[in-house]
Amino acid sequence: MDLLSENKRAAIWSIALLIVGLLVWEMSISAQAINTGELTEYELLTGADTAKAGVPPPSEVAVKAWQELSNPFYDAGPNDKGIGIQIGYSIYRVLTGYFLAAIIAIPLGFLIGMSSVAYKALNPFIQVLRPISPLAWMPLALFIIQDSEASAIFVIFICSIWPMLLNTAFGVAGVREDWVNVARTHELGAFKTAFTVVLPAAAPTIVTGMRISIGIAWLVIVAAEMLVGGTGIGYYVWNEWNNLDLTSVIFSILMIGVVGMLLDAAFGLLQRRVAYVE
């Protein structure tokens, strides 16, 4: 009965869904016929004889994608840069803010995880700061930092710190006491214990936190760049909206999805590397 493996059957279903979806999209758009009948003077005046700016069909998006992706790094002035450059800016901001957050969140998470006093002391602050929408920090960041680029990085920093901090603390606190006792009976110092026992034991939980963080950071960068402007994929989406170039908008939305997926997959790979079975 099962002639094909589960993966192959799933792949066939995925492709079928994609084709059906694209066909429905394509057909629903060509159905929006342009009014070609007799027009009144008023209708002519309001531009009813020209094609309305509509949602483009997938074929147009595909053509646009081909154009953009065949030359992704051109730079023809501030408002006309290749998609590769725009995404590059976004990734640079995300990674900078993200790694700054990791440098603080992981050691601090270790401290909170190891000491219940530190946990209780810091917990009220974490609980208040964590639910704040990262964009709410933007005005304050712009005022204090006085630099839109650095403010965007700060917003990424503040939004990616919490999952990493809490997961590190949770992972470190949950390290099996027997493993710590193994380190103690081998007279390992505090640093050696942290690196050779606690870190590998907590690594799966920590990397889960890092994976959640990078996902959030990628969500937030689009919104942040719409606000600060200049460069980046978020700015690009907003700019093309202002140009009423919906083909480009749809194309960049897809690109945001693809890059997000790749970032997540990279951390998924890391997660598999540090995983262990008890």
Binding site: E187, A201, V277
Partner: peptide
């Protein structure tokens, strides 16, 4: 305090599962 002079074999979980 614990010391290398006194080795311990625990009932379970005395091996580090990632090694």
């Amino acid at each position: 305090g614990p010391s290398l002079d006194r080795g311990v074999v625990f009932q379970n979980y005395s091996l580090l599962p990632w090694l």
